[in-house]
Nucleic acid binder design. Structure first.
Lengths: 252, 252
DNA sequence: TGTCCAGATTGGCCTGACCAGCTAAGGGGT
DNA sequence: ACCCCTTAGCTGGTCAGGCCAATCTGGACA
């Protein structure tokens, strides 16, 4: 699906975020979502915007609205249809992103325009602001940041690849719950790392951009591993150690 | 006020009515609908209700809203075949493959099993045999070679990414015709380059594998560029011939 | 004649409010 | 002690009015 959702209307962002949370199982099927008023407060938008988002979800068949009662999750089907919907693990996903988005950044460094650099700067600022306010929607700016870099490569195949990875991420219950846990554990959105990537792109240095992107995703991977360690029991330690060894030794 | 009688939200009625008028041709494709304020007045509803109706139409692909300009009727797309896969150009595809499959090879080098190495060896042999018999090089062996390497990464996200690229390649008319031309022009199946990749994988060297893969795809890219030039020359020649014919037959 | 800028128009979003269903808690009757 | 029924509080549905930014348009100016 062609991503027209970039920098779009507010309700689209909210709808996408809610859709992800439903897909991730954060709202069980049959469960009632928070009230429109609560959602408006949580997303820091007005109630009409929340209503529009809910209408979008309803038209997608994800949700059912019952007057006077609330809005209920009806299904858990992802937004774009049924193309390839296996659940890719969080660590696999990040490993692939490190490899692919690293190259995306390297390609973009040579081709990125001043306008796109400015957009990236704004997105970093946005993440910073949202982080300061501890707002729910912080993932959206992150996603747009990475997608914009892919777009800057002027290579639609690369855009499609990166898009696929983020779609898979949104569709993966494992990844969603894990990243939610990491968020709750106080993992910051890594403003400085994004700034480092931006800096490398500004310098038009493919090598520096690749390295900054890979470093960033390596750290995300590590913090996710740490979050996993904190939450899981001793029984899992051996397996985690094995994973860590594997995912940290193959960096190229 | 519109008949509030039956159940159903107001915006649904408005959306349905507008949808009918569009289908009936009352609003020609490309034409601008009345402004939200005017529609609100016409339907005797509030502007938020009109907005919700327009959002519904937009999600149905009937309409496109342009900020500051208005909402415009768009062409009705055939429902269902959403695959939305545009035709990705051959060169974009190869550039993306060089970046992504290069990393795929690097990852695989550290993890590939002896069984997979043996399979790769057989695939190279298969390509060689087909090439020796001057058979129409079925791309199948080539594809299986590259997919097997992706599989060897033991990373399903990477597999999905590489798979997507090959799917796009299979779907792309441009790429297909171009690669057919390249074959016709006597481009060899590059057995040696595949062997080089295999050799690097055998040595379990990520760097060598990445380099071999990138070199391979770079050369494919170059030969495709050459084929394009040939094709353009042929087209130019044909065009000239056609013109000559035209001017010699109609001038009399 | 061509260019440029200010006002009008449009969608994007917000605040605040009222109404009508629904739900569950609490009171009265048995 | 149990059950039914009222009722207060939620929830979504809708409205009204307003501000902002993007866009368009026409007239003034060079």
């Amino acid at each position: 699906m062609i991503a027209k959702t970039e920098a779009g209307r507010l309700y689209e962002k909210v709808a996408q975020d809610l859709s992800q949370k439903i897909a991730a199982g954060q709202y069980v099927i049959g469960q009632r979502l928070p009230s429109e008023r609560d959602l408006a407060q949580a997303y820091e938008v007005s109630r009409p915007t929340i209503r529009e988002a809910i209408i979008a979800l309803e038209l997608d068949g994800l949700v059912e609205v019952r007057l006077g009662s609330g809005v209920y999750v009806t299904a858990r089907l992802p937004r774009g249809g049924q193309a390839g919907e296996m659940d890719i693990g969080p660590f696999e996903l990040l490993e692939a992103r490190r490899a692919i988005e690293g190259e995306s950044a390297a390609l973009a460094a040579a081709l990125i325009s001043d306008e796109e650099l400015e957009e990236l700067r704004q997105l970093v600022a946005e993440m910073q602001a949202e982080n300061a306010r501890n707002v729910v929607m912080s993932e959206d700016a992150d996603r747009r940041f990475h997608m914009l870099i892919a777009t800057a490569t002027q290579n639609s195949a690369m855009v499609a690849a990166v898009q696929m990875l983020w779609d898979a991420r949104a569709r993966s219950p494992q990844t969603q719950s894990l990243s939610a846990k990491a968020h709750a554990a106080g993992v910051t959105p890594r403003i400085d790392e994004h700034a480092e990537i931006l800096k490398a792109l500004r310098e038009r240095s493919p090598e520096a951009a690749r390295r900054a992107m890979r470093d960033h995703l390596t750290r995300v991977l590590e913090s996710l591993l740490a979050a996993t360690e904190v939450q899981e029991l001793e029984q899992a330690r051996a397996r985690i150690a094995a994973e860590r060894k594997r995912y940290t030794t193959t960096s190229g």
